[in-house]
Design a protein around this nucleic acid. Structure first.
Length: 488
RNA sequence: GGUCCUGUGGCCGAGGGGCUUAGGCACUGGUCUGCAAAACCAGUUACAGCGGUUCGAAUCCGCUCGGGACCUCCA
């Protein structure tokens, strides 16, 4: 473990405050994140949440924790309308496209994995699916029934919220009172199976035409959406685990229900630290599939969309996200992305420069102190934007050394090289090498630049500018300096 | 309607009672350059409005106005 690990503070949504992070088991972290429902292409807002928690996981590992990162795939049980009414999302899509539900699941799971790889998000250690854990869910339902917190009705099973609330506060995570919830609940049709409107489904009976269904002690049916996360987190991380992450919009009711289910089945509140990432907006409006104010990652990378002036690479988008705190909303605009692109390129350029620096004498700044600032930023509830600000302090210094205006000692240079690699590449997850096929291009470019240099020495500006302009048209930028020309 | 969050300079975004002129982008001037780009140096623009608490508020409290989230599917 790194010494800095003891300084980590995490904002816990349930406590409503930053708390020192102390894992349940020293050296280990159990980490669960609510994954996507794979009934359509993953959109950019979803991606932000997963990228935020990817950064969290990377930092925990950097500190020396052995992290078991579990992120589920929801492939059944998530209904399109009211939580206990309406059609299963996967089944609806399958019906519309005349496909097997599992074809839908496969198609969008592959898309999800592809996009996450483009964003350089590490895969979780375990990625369980709801349909793969029907037995575990049935067992948990039975335990909740046995403990008196759920009842069967017409082949379905519902969680008895009022009964639960007598002994445990329901609504603590989202700051709600059960009286307010009851007075605000709409009365919907077809809820006569439930004793009270607040009750939520643990198991739903399935009509004969329903495609995705399994036998259970209560008849043929399918599990309720909230249950899978409880069942799978318990199976892989235990009845109590360290960190649970997800989007803000899942706080209520989804995570509230998870707390209730965990507590009702084994008597323990399941999660030590609740973390919630904030939403993404597009031109100031919430990104939402239903309103059309939404952009797919692929559309952003290709430029094939009506919101952005140009395409942006996955790493630029990731860098842009890292410039905002995960608990703040972040607005996607063309202008903001273009600014981020320049900043990203500047940082990456400095990463290369750092490798070729010539150490000499004493350092003109306090390098260990600067590296300490990196840790200080991340230890303050994963404050990546402050980290980025500190990284740019390093960039300024690196460029100063390169230009001979500052100096760096050998020890400091090696320490800075390691630290920058750690924070930029390992923790923020920004890849420094993305181009392929550079092997053959490099010697060609050496030749081209040599020819141009000859032209410049002969003051043949027409030729040298022609070469530069021609390369620019091909997307290669030539930069001249005293020591010769470079390209990128 | 209920609960909660939020409003920072041209833009994005940290911070959060008295030394951060945070940082990035943009802009202006300068250095360098054959010119340019890149680098570097310097500089400009700020805490929605009104009232209150305080020796002192962008930072706390109240109200007003604006934005948003959840309360129904969404990360």
């Amino acid at each position: 473990m790194r010494a800095e690990a003891t300084q980590l503070k995490i904002y816990d949504s349930l406590a409503g405050d930053k708390r020192n992070f102390v894992p349940l088991k020293e050296g280990f972290v159990g980490f669960y994140v609510c994954g996507p429902t794979v009934y359509s292409n993953v959109h950019l807002g979803n991606c932000r949440t997963f990228i935020s928690f990817d950064m969290v996981c990377r930092y925990l590992r950097h500190l020396g924790y052995k992290v078991r990162y579990v992120r589920n795939i929801t492939d059944v049980g998530h209904l399109v309308d009211d939580a206990d009414q309406g059609e299963d999302k996967i089944a609806k899509k399958a019906r519309l496209e005349q496909l097997e539900p599992m074809e839908i699941v496969q198609q969008y799971s592959l898309d999800f994995h592809h996009v996450m790889a483009q964003f350089n998000a590490l895969p979780p250690n375990i990625e369980p699916t709801a349909t793969g854990h029907i037995i575990e869910q049935i067992e948990m339902i039975q335990a909740i029934i046995d403990n008196g917190f759920a009842y069967e009705s017409n082949g379905s099973v519902y969680f008895d919220v009022e009964k639960y609330n007598e002994s445990h506060p329901y609504g603590a995570l989202s700051g709600r009172k059960i009286e307010d919830l009851m007075s605000n609940t709409r009365t919907l049709d077809g809820q006569d199976e439930k004793r009270a409107p607040l009750d939520f489904a643990l198991w739903k009976n399935a009509a004969p035409e329903h495609i995705m269904k399994w036998p259970s002690p209560w008849g043929v049916g399918f599990p309720g959406w909230h249950l899978e996360c409880s069942a799978m987190s318990t199976k892989y991380l235990g009845e109590e685990f360290d960190i649970h992450g997800g989007g803000m919009d899942l706080k209520f009711p989804h995570h509230e229900c998870e707390i209730a289910q965990g507590t009702a089945s084994n008597g323990k509140s399941p999660v030590k630290y609740w973390m919630h990432g904030n939403m993404l907006t597009l031109n100031g409006q919430k990104m939402s599939k239903s309103t059309g104010n939404s952009i797919l990652p692929g559309e952003l990378f290709s430029g094939n969309n009506k919101f952005m002036e140009k395409p942006f690479s996955p790493m630029v988008v990731r860098f842009f996200m890292m410039q905002a705190h995960y608990r703040s909303t972040l607005d996607f605009t063309s202008e903001a992305l273009m600014a981020a692109e320049k900043g990203h390129d500047k940082l990456m350029e400095a990463m290369k420069t750092l490798q070729d620096l010539k150490p000499a004498g004493e350092s003109t700044i306090d390098v260990p102190g600067l590296i300490g600032q990196f840790y200080k930023a991340m230890n303050d509830d994963f404050n990546a934007p402050v980290l980025v600000a500190q990284l740019f302090e390093a960039v300024k210094f690196i460029n100063g050394v390169r230009d001979g205006k500052q100096t760096i000692s050998k020890d400091d240079m090696e320490a800075l090289q390691i630290a920058m690699q750690n924070f930029v590449v390992e923790i923020l997850g920004l890849e420094t090498t993305v181009e392929g096929g550079e092997d053959k291009l490099a010697p060609v470019m050496d030749l081209v630049l040599e020819l141009r240099q000859q032209a410049r020495e002969n003051k043949d500006w027409d030729t040298s500018d022609k070469i530069r302009d021609g390369l620019a048209a091909a997307g290669i930028v030539v930069k001249d300096s005293k020591d010769g020309s470079t390209w990128s």
